[in-house]
Every structure is written in structure tokens, then in C-alpha cells.
Computed example of a mutant assay.
Amino acid sequence: MSTSRTGPSPALRASELDRFSAYRAGEGGRRDAADEILDLSNNEVMISPLPAVAEALRRIGTDVNLYPDPTAHTLRLRLAEHFGAGAEETLVGPGSAGVLQQLLLVLCGAGDEVLYAWPGFDAYPLLIAVSGARGVPVPLTASGDHDLPRLLEKVNSRTRAVILCSPHNPTGSRITRPALRRFLDGLPSHVVAVLDQAYTEFDAEEDQRDLTPIRDYGNVVLLRTFSKAHGLAGLRVGYAFASAEIVHRARKTVIPFSITRTGERAAVASLQQQEALTARIATIRRLRGALEDDLGAEGLVPTPSAGNFVWLPLGPSSERFAASALEAGVRVRAYADMGVRISVGTEQAHRRVLLAARRHRSG
């Protein structure tokens, strides 16, 4: 005999979270192999892990009954050595989104504000709300760039952080070093600039080992990930460089054991394969350039991209293009009334995108 309890639901505290849906709600089952849909909607790298990384994964034992190192000490030291940072300036966590959550939890709280460009990474407003702060979106310029003067105008006494994404997701635009310096020079010292560099390896103009921003400014964080260029999205490993004070506080907010032993070892192995990684990145840049050229030949001109994706500013017809792509057997990401983001994929997937482009143009 079963029993059930009836009565009022538990009283839930009103929260900034109430304004948002869960991350990608309703997209479960998108990888159903039966539908033969090729997915270019998530900015994943379609190339298999580097051979040395695959070998490292094969060598990992079955001791999953044991907890991983809660500090991911080896990875943190390898990152510091590779980039020329101090270990006390290096923060690791479960993907760049996990590291960003750690940072926001120590940078802001109830009554504070965090600025970010929009459209942008869907998780920004959610992670800001989890911290208790209020997110303030600032529209991109017509060309898909950060409106840096407008962001500075929005800064006030309640502002605790500004998130800048370069190369920007979803438009692929980049913030030049001179523009970034001008912005940071005008940013009050009580505001931390979090520079989300998840796609930085694909930007041919950037030197990933240049940590000048955190050397010259105490209120800057460089946020990065192994999910994109390294192709380890499924293992959830991210990292950041910042002042020792920020890192010391942010480490206290990490979920215990959130970087698995598998993730740490794979990340360390990938970090040691710079020559192979450079070749992989060159391949993705070549495929990106070819996709941009082919779309342009079909009359759909992407904005210049420094990421592993291209952006078509299609405005009101964005969702129609995404529907055409799905009919052609490829999934892309539409931003209603703004544009379409297409991840760089295989040549087969790109052929389907071009078929969708032709249908879109003729429709």
C-alpha cells in the first residue's frame, strides 16, 4: 500500500533565477543517431582527441572508486609552467563555465550587477543569477562587436564584474589589444574584467602565452578551457589566470572533486602536445575559411570570425535558415531575429550547410 503526502509546496525563496529557463532546456536527445543529423550547433571540435591524449585515456585505470585529487595539483602546476604564471595565479575547475561560477561567487552577490554583451553565451545570465547578482546585458554593435564605450557607460557603484568574450560567442569578433587596454584603463578598480577566452586558440592574432593583462591590471581575469581547441568538451576542464588574491578566494568555492582524474590526466597530456595541437588548429582555421568562402559564394556573407564557428547575420530569417539546415541534415544554432551560428565541422557537414544556404536563398 502506497501513501502520499498532500499539502502546500515548500516555500521557495524568490530569486533572480526565476527569470530564466534552465540551460538549453528542452534540447535533450539532440544526439539521436537514428535521425542522422550532424550537429554543428554546440561549437564542439569535430576532430577526435589528439593521439597522445587518446593513448593517455586508454592507460587510465578503473580506480573510479577513489576520489580524484581535490586540488588538481598536477594540472595547476603544468598550466602555470606552460604559460609562465605563478601557481598562486592559476585556477582550475570543471570547464570554463564552472570556473566562471567560482569567480562570480566571490566577486559579487545580492544587489550587485554584472555586465555582459548580448547576444552571448547562454550560461552568463544563469551563472550571474546563481551568484545572487543581477545581469545587465549590453547589445553588440551592428557589426557584432562589443560596444566597449557603452559597457563603460553602464558601470556604476553596484557593478562588480564585466564579462568580455573574445573571440566572441556567437559572432566570432575579437577585441584587439589596443581596444582592450583602452577599456581597462577606463574601468574603475572596484570592477573586475573577466576576459572569456574559450576560443582564443583559434584567433591567429593572439599570443595565448601573453598574460600581460593580469600583469598590468589587478582587476583582470583570463578565463580559458580545454573544451574547444583541445577537444576535451566531454571531460569538463577549465582554468583561469588572475591575481593571487582573486584565485585564493575563488578556490574556496569549487565543488569538491569536480575535476575528475580522467579529465586532469587528459588535460595534462594535451598540454604537452603543442605541435600536434597547432596542426589541429590550422586545420580548423582552414575549414573555417573554406566555409566562409563557400557561404559567401552562395550570397550569405558571414562576419569575420576568430573562433571555431561562423556567424551569419540573417536577422528575421535566422530561424528559417536553421529549419532549412535541419531539413538538409545538419543542426545549427539560430538566435531569433539576429543570426545563425555554425560550428566548423567536417566537409560532409559543410556540404549540408551549403545545401541549406541554397534552399534559403531560393526560398
Results as ranks from 00 to 15, higher is better:
L105M: 13
V106P: 02
C108I: 01
G109P: 07
G111A: 06
D112E: 14
D112R: 02
V114D: 11
V114L: 08
L115R: 05
A117R: 01
A117V: 05
F121N: 10
D122M: 09
P125H: 09
P125S: 11
P125G: 13
L126N: 06
L126K: 03
L127I: 08
A129Q: 08
A129C: 06
S131V: 01
G132C: 10
A133E: 11
A133D: 12
R134Y: 05
G135Q: 05
G135L: 02
V136M: 13
P137Q: 12
V138M: 03
V138Q: 01
L140I: 10
L140V: 09
L140P: 03
S143L: 12
G144T: 08
P149H: 07
P149K: 04
R150G: 00
R150L: 15
K154V: 11
K154D: 04
K154W: 09
V155A: 02
V155C: 04
N156T: 14
S157N: 12
T159V: 00
V162F: 06
V162Q: 07
I163N: 09
L164T: 10
P167I: 06
P167V: 04
P167M: 09
H168K: 10
N169W: 14
N169K: 07
N169H: 14
P170C: 08
T171P: 06
G172R: 07
R174F: 01
T176A: 15
R177C: 00
P178C: 08
P178W: 12
F183W: 06
L184D: 11
D185A: 13
G186Q: 11
L187E: 08
L187H: 05
L187M: 12
P188F: 08
P188Y: 02
P188K: 03
S189R: 15
V191A: 06
A193W: 06
A193H: 08
A193C: 15
A193E: 03
V194N: 05
V194Y: 01
L195D: 05
L195E: 11
D196E: 13
D196Q: 07
Q197M: 15
Q197Y: 04
Y199R: 13
T200W: 07
T200E: 12
T200M: 11
T200V: 15
D203F: 01
D203Q: 07
D203P: 03
A204Q: 13
E206V: 15
D207V: 14
Q208R: 15
Q208V: 15
R209S: 14
R209E: 13
R209V: 09
D210R: 07
L211R: 06
L211S: 11
T212C: 00
P213G: 07
P213T: 12
I214K: 03
R215S: 10
Y217W: 15
Y217A: 04
N219P: 10
V220F: 02
V220Q: 00
V220A: 02
V221E: 04
R224D: 00
T225V: 01
S227P: 00
S227Y: 04
S227G: 03
S227T: 03
